[in-house]
Design a protein around this nucleic acid. Structure first.
Lengths: 203, 203
DNA sequence: AGATATACAGCACGATCGTTCGTATTGTAA
DNA sequence: TTACAATACGAACGATCGTGCTGTATATCT
């Protein structure tokens, strides 16, 4: 019985974080309130915050869990593809798929967090920045591999490719969601494929 | 003297809106607080809110004024360029310039507002969506002109170009600001130029 | 000059914010 | 059985939220 209880506790904490992810993907990480989250989880404010210490620790836990969710949805399916261009293409597909599937009910969580903290200092800013830097580094490494293999133009900067993909995915999904345009993700996908295509392959 | 006073009032209202723009570009449109804004303007909460009616009306006024500021910085300088590709290139340059010049102290205001309201219904959502739709329509019209003039590939969808430019500018500037990478705007500019370049011109 | 409208300060309101208590319950370890 | 740590509750804290109401000073108009 000992095991069961421990698992229950862990699951309960995880459940709180998962609920908070969904809430924060809509309202923002700063839009989380202990009261609302506690109500949604049918528990007291003090009981909820007690697990994390304070609100900031909760936000950091939520961010970490959301990154995990993103990694599962985008990186993991693509990791089995060959390094370089094939993997980049797999990432693009998985990326668009995860946006279309509403893995985060309010749009990409990292994008929301990025905008929230891009001009506000603090631990949360640093955490989000670290996450984005790491993701850009992954994309850049794949782009470099692709270029070295001749799958991208030799004069193409891998860091350019990385930022371009990231900007398109986050900007495209936000705009599409905002103006409620179902074609936006298709356009975004085409643009991302263009970004990793050889110029001579055309649009 | 009558004129003077009326102008003072208008200027006072405008000053409130301008201060709110700067505040909201950092903290978000939802992060505006009557109390903080009033303190910053050295006036009472009731005196401030009295000019607008309620907070939502203030937010809408702030959004409208921010759009004006964006238009002044990006559209107006480019409007004198020839329609089509030249104007698109001028827009890209002005766009990047305005991001580099920190026209909005906390990053592009419309981007912040887009992310805030992309998953939240209400009048603010509708206002922001209208603004973005209008801007995308402008970009699309220029792209169509460019394509019809042979400055873009015939099989290139003008709406694709519009969304691509918009996504790159908003996504690129957010990421660059977040990870504090001074080269990000250069990369974004290259990507935007790539988006309106003929494939054969290369990277 | 007197009437009227407006702008704003001051104050209070109910609500909610994050946080901190004290306490009761529970599972784990000695 | 006893001691301990974790969990969660209810209640309350001071602070701040947006928004009313009221009095007053000033500006505009007749």
């Amino acid at each position: 019985m000992a095991r069961r209880t421990t698992e229950d506790v862990a699951r309960s904490r995880a459940a709180a974080v998962e609920a908070a992810i969904d809430l924060a993907s809509i309202e923002g990480l700063e839009g989380i309130t202990i009261g609302r989250l506690a109500t949604e989880l049918s528990m007291s404010k003090s009981g909820l915050i007690g697990r994390f210490g304070d609100k900031q620790a909760l936000q950091q836990a939520v961010l970490a869990a959301a990154v995990e969710r993103f990694t599962d949805a985008v990186w993991r399916p693509a990791a089995s593809a060959d390094p370089g261009l094939p993997r980049l293409e797999a990432i693009v597909d998985a990326w668009i798929d995860h946006l279309r599937a509403d893995v985060f009910p309010g749009g990409c969580f990292v994008t929301t967090a990025s905008v929230e903290y891009d001009a506000r200092p603090g631990p949360l800013h640093d955490d989000v920045a670290t996450v984005v830097r790491r993701w850009l580094a992954v994309l850049e490494a794949e782009a470099r591999t692709a270029r070295d293999a001749g799958d991208l133009p030799a004069d193409r900067d891998p860091a350019d490719v990385a930022l371009e993909l990231h900007a398109l995915a986050s900007g495209g999904s936000v705009a599409g969601r905002l103006i409620d345009d179902p074609a936006a993700l298709d356009r975004t996908r085409r643009a991302m494929r263009r970004a990793i295509g050889r110029p001579t392959t055309g649009g």
